[in-house]
């Protein structure tokens, strides 16, 4: 008998008393009663609490904000689907900033990703109550590896994509897409249960919220 059949047989035997399947109560909050302004305010508060740098800016000013944050950087990587207009003000100063585009045709290697200063991505959605940004591998967010290896992650989030509670985000996301949920920069609580930021993931997380 195969291990699978064996285990299935053991389970069926273990359940021979036919335990009842309970009706699952769903009395917890599944939607928000906050205004968009309140959600934005809460998200900023929660992200900052976990040591992310947060900038709220009108969408039209996003390129300028990005250029300001990247002043002094020499190279970045972006997913091929990132809106081109966000990068419009980056190449002004004599092209000193190299922008690598990661695409299905030209996938950056680990070594190349390890050499860039930062990654710029969009986000799928965000949960204000927990300070969580969700990436789902869409074309404006790219492969999981590009938002992981560079030491700095700059994430542009549209304010309209902010929800308050996790169930709202789950309803917006597609389970089978490769996902990364991010709540602040890489951290650990492994020494005396004291949270310190900066281990293996990006040590700097900048979030630009576009209003």
């Amino acid at each position: 008998m195969s291990a699978r059949e064996d285990i299935m047989g053991r389970i069926k035997s273990a359940l021979r008393d036919a335990p009842e399947t309970p009706v699952v109560p769903r009395e917890y909050r599944r939607s928000s009663n906050m205004s968009a302004e309140q959600r934005l305010e809460q998200l900023v508060d929660r992200l900052e609490d976990y040591k992310a740098n947060v900038f709220v800016t009108p969408a039209a000013k996003a390129p300028a904000k990005l250029a300001e944050l990247l002043a002094g950087s020499s190279s970045i990587v972006v997913p091929h689907g990132l809106p081109k207009e966000w990068l419009a003000e980056l190449t002004d100063d004599a092209g000193s900033l190299a922008v690598h585009v990661d695409s299905p045709e030209r996938r950056l290697t680990v070594a190349e990703l390890d050499a860039v200063d930062a990654v710029v991505t969009a986000a799928a959605t965000a949960v204000s109550e927990t300070g969580t940004i969700m990436l789902d591998g869409s074309e404006d967010q790219g492969r999981r590896i590009i938002s992981l290896v560079p030491d700095r992650h700059i994430c542009l989030l549209r304010a309209g994509d902010i929800v308050e509670v996790l169930p709202e985000a789950i309803a917006r996301l597609e389970a089978t897409r490769p996902q990364t949920w991010i709540s602040g920069p890489s951290a650990t609580s492994d020494i005396e249960l004291e949270r310190v930021e900066g281990v293996h993931g990006p040590r700097i997380l900048d979030v630009i919220i576009l209003t």
């Binding site: 929660r46 976990y50 299905p104 996938r107 949960v127 109550e129 927990t130 300070g131 969580t132 591998g137 492969r143 999981r144 590896i145 389970a175 089978t176 897409r177 490769p178 996902q179 990364t180 949920w181 991010i182 709540s183 602040g184 920069p185 890489s186 951290a187 993931g201």
Partner: peptide, 16 residues
């Protein structure tokens, strides 16, 4: 409120 990182995967994602 939430741990810093949660990863979700379903089988193989081509190229990722």
């Amino acid at each position: 409120r939430m741990n810093p990182y949660t990863s979700l995967w379903t089988g193989v994602t081509p190229g990722d």
